[in-house]
Simulated assay, not measured.
Amino acid sequence: MNKQELISAIASAANLSTVEAACALDATTDAITHALAQGSDVRLMGFGSFVVRDRAARTGRNPKTGDTVQIKASKVAAFKAGKALKEAVNS
């Protein structure tokens, strides 16, 4: 499912126009992005949690040349599925 298909699904499920559904989706993703940028977690009961994880510095390898390179430490966004989502996927 791509973004347009998701917008259409939201619009039909919530009885909204596609423009309103697009605005709602954009506002949701912006709110999640802003919270993660601040270092906060976003927890949606039954669905899952968006969290920020620290990734340590590590040594990698350039596949083209075979040379080793140092990869800097960074922060990454991660999603952990909630119980209800896991059950829905595995049913």
Rank of each mutant, 00 (worst) to 15 (best):
M1F: 09
N2C: 08
N2F: 06
K3S: 13
Q4D: 07
Q4C: 00
L6H: 03
I7F: 02
S8E: 13
S8G: 11
S8N: 13
S8Y: 05
A9H: 13
I10E: 01
A11K: 11
A11N: 11
A11W: 13
A11Y: 12
A11L: 12
S12H: 09
S12A: 11
A14W: 04
A14K: 08
N15T: 15
S17R: 08
S17P: 00
T18I: 10
T18K: 15
V19A: 15
E20D: 14
E20I: 06
E20V: 03
A21I: 14
A22S: 15
A22E: 15
C23F: 08
C23I: 08
C23N: 10
C23V: 08
C23T: 10
A24I: 13
A24N: 09
L25C: 06
D26G: 02
A27D: 13
A27K: 02
A27W: 07
A27Q: 08
T29K: 00
D30Y: 01
D30W: 00
A31L: 13
I32D: 06
I32F: 04
T33P: 04
H34I: 00
H34L: 00
A35W: 00
A35I: 02
L36A: 12
A37F: 03
Q38D: 04
Q38C: 02
Q38E: 03
G39V: 07
G39H: 08
G39C: 10
S40I: 04
S40A: 14
S40W: 06
S40P: 05
D41R: 04
V42C: 04
V42G: 01
L44D: 05
M45G: 09
M45W: 06
G46D: 05
G46L: 03
F47H: 09
F47W: 11
G48D: 09
S49E: 09
S49T: 15
F50G: 01
F50H: 05
V52I: 15
V52C: 05
R53Y: 03
R53S: 02
D54W: 01
D54Q: 05
D54V: 01
D54T: 04
R55G: 06
R55I: 10
A56Q: 14
A57F: 05
R58N: 01
T59S: 03
T59I: 14
T59V: 10
T59C: 01
T59Y: 05
G60C: 11
R61T: 02
R61P: 00
R61E: 00
R61F: 01
N62S: 01
K64W: 07
G66S: 03
G66Q: 02
D67I: 12
D67V: 15
T68M: 12
Q70S: 06
Q70I: 02
Q70R: 14
Q70D: 03
Q70P: 02
K72C: 04
K72N: 12
A73L: 11
A73Q: 11
A73D: 13
S74T: 09
S74A: 15
S74F: 07
V76C: 07
A77F: 09
A77K: 11
A77M: 11
F79N: 13
F79S: 13
F79E: 12
K80M: 09
A81Y: 07
K83V: 12
L85Q: 03
L85D: 06
E87T: 13
A88F: 11
A88L: 14
A88T: 14
V89R: 04
V89S: 06
N90V: 04
N90A: 12
S91F: 02
